[in-house]
Amino acid sequence: MIAEKMTQAFQWTYNENDQEFSLHGSLRPQRADELSNCISALEQSVSNVSGMFYVNVRRLVRMNNVAFHALGCKILDLVRTRTDLKVHVTTSSVVGWATRKFAVLETMSDKITVSEYDNEFYPGQSFVEDSAFIHVLRTQTKLTWRHEKDLLAKHGLKPGMQVADICCGIGDFAVLLQKEFAPDRLVALDHSRASLDYARRVASDFGVRGIDYVFGDAADMLLEDNQFDFVTCRHSLQVFDRPERILKELFRICKPGGRVYVTNEKNSHCLGEPRGESIQWTYTEVAKLWHHFDMDIEIGPKSRRLLIEGGFEDVSIGSFMVTNTDGNPQDFADVIESWKKLFADTMATQRGDDEAFKEKFAKGFDDHIFAALHPKGYAGWPIWVASGRKPL
């Protein structure tokens, strides 16, 4: 591994095992010769490489034309003089200009390829960012908050802390955190611009100030190390096909001694009576459906292992059951109705399921709604809560 800090704002690293040269921070030289050390490191890194060489600019937040010209010319020079070499540049849609700039290199050589990291990392992103799902997410938060506001305190959240809510979605949970716990600083980050726009409107409508809504990639955040006393990430590890990468970033931004708090589901444990058998069958199928799209809605009880393997200590885990008795049963029924539309219609159709299967699949959701609204019925949705402390 080669690693050298050029200025406080800019770094480069080389991972020999992955043949990947990564750039971090802000790259804004006045003259090309200011990059001579970096270019030399790039040349040294590639000298023993054959085949594919990776240039990673996902965490390069700024780059002026002087820097791009110097780096771009060097990459073109490498592929033109080395017949055995190809270069792949990885950008991030979080930094929108990066893909536009580096895509130019693809037009200049068929040995250079460019891709946006985010597009392939989030297999279920199009489902969870559906704007029609926003009102459902608010209802879900309303149902879980009555449990979580007490659990957050038990897991170590106190007023006056530096707090980050990662994968904040539509921002309603961050608003509740701000009102209930009055953090000294609250950063709410998400990868969906539409969700963040909605979050800002909600905060404004409710007169809530002090939340810094940030567009960012949860697996590669442009946030500095060791910033936050308490980091939350709710119902999100289950959406990513590599949750350990998210946890690595949560660990990185958490202060030593601080805690990371995650919530996730085990959907096959959703239950209801009457019509329990139909309900159980459908939610077992939900787990299989998510697996098809490389997501794991069964991850809840796995959270303890994931946190321990991620380097956390003093790991605490538990669960609570959201039910039709938590306030208005219609709220619970509305959430299930939205799940039916998303799972038994949109996702099942994309998987290629036939109409007979989708009809049976949808019936389990209808039966769960029946149980929720029945005067003698019971319907439950289990949530696992876990947190771990970053070692001092």
Rank of each mutant, 00 (worst) to 15 (best):
D18L: 15
F133K: 04
R252K: 09
G257D: 04
P274A: 02
S126R: 14
D220P: 00
D184R: 14
E337M: 09
S92P: 11
K390Q: 06
A153E: 14
F206L: 10
P274K: 01
G51M: 00
G96Y: 11
D33L: 10
V239I: 15
K86G: 05
G210F: 04
W381E: 03
V89I: 15
E244F: 09
W145N: 05
G388V: 03
S50P: 00
D130W: 04
L105A: 10
D33N: 13
G207V: 01
V136H: 13
D296K: 00
F173K: 08
G380T: 05
R201S: 05
P243Q: 07
T346N: 09
E337G: 13
T284E: 13
D184Y: 06
A188H: 08
V208T: 02
R242D: 12
D229Q: 07
R193Y: 04
W145I: 03
R100V: 11
D229A: 08
H88I: 10
Q162M: 14
E180V: 04
V104S: 09
F357R: 09
F320N: 07
V87Q: 06
G380C: 05
V315Y: 01
M1I: 08
N37Y: 07
S316G: 05
D354A: 11
R304T: 13
T81W: 04
S93A: 12
F312H: 07
Q8N: 15
R28P: 00
A372E: 01
Q140T: 14
P329E: 01
T284I: 02
K158T: 10
D354K: 12
F181Q: 01
L85M: 14
Q280R: 14
R259V: 06
I75F: 13
A182W: 06
L223A: 11
D345V: 12
F343K: 07
Q227G: 11
V136F: 10
Q330M: 14
H155Q: 07
H155W: 09
E120Q: 15
R28E: 12
V187H: 12
K266G: 02
H291K: 12
H147R: 10
L247A: 09
G364T: 04
E309W: 04
F332S: 05
A386C: 15
G25Y: 03
F173G: 03
R58Y: 02
P256G: 03
R305F: 13
K5G: 11
L105T: 09
R259N: 08
I383T: 12
H292P: 01
S278I: 11
G124K: 01
E106R: 14
D314R: 12
A132Y: 10
R305D: 13
T113R: 10
N48M: 07
L237R: 04
T91K: 03
G124N: 03
L152E: 02
I299T: 05
N267V: 15
D205M: 00
L71E: 09
S45M: 05
S319W: 11
F173C: 08
E34S: 12
P391Q: 01
F293G: 01
S126D: 10
D190Y: 07
Y261C: 07
K363S: 14
L177Q: 03
A386T: 15
K74Y: 06
S204V: 03
A188M: 08
L42T: 08
V87T: 11
W384E: 05
Q350P: 01
E355L: 13
S319I: 02
Y14P: 08
Q11V: 08
L42P: 06
